[in-house]
Design a protein around this nucleic acid. Sequence first.
DNA 1: CGAGTGACCGCAA
DNA 2: ATTGCGGCCACTC
Length: 106
Amino acid sequence: MHKSNESFRKTIESLVALVPVGSVTTYGDLATMAGAPFAARAVGGLAHYGDINLPWHRVVNSKGGMARGYPGGMESHARQLRLDGIKVTKYKVDNFEELRWHGIAR
DNA sequence: CGAGTGACCGCAA
DNA sequence: ATTGCGGCCACTC
């Protein structure tokens, strides 16, 4: 059988790469999708140490807010989201629940 | 291998 | 709204 040989890292990075433009996801959701509902922090770790080429700006916290240690600060994070066509007010994604990505085939 | 780090999460005061 | 604390996880050094 196929065991989930793919490391969390790869799984998470794959998911992040799939988040559609205009949508967002959260660290917790990614962790859950990857099968580790309590690994939100680990996802944050990957955001920091992982592949910088991935669209990490589409990953926000559980409240739809900007990430704390985003390079350049929350302003930078918000700017990136706006470039995706996402509206951000007070460092929070507008219509967060609407734009929230539910993964592939939910 | 052990300790430290972190872009989290939820709850309590 | 803000601050503090514990918890859980993977990664780096």
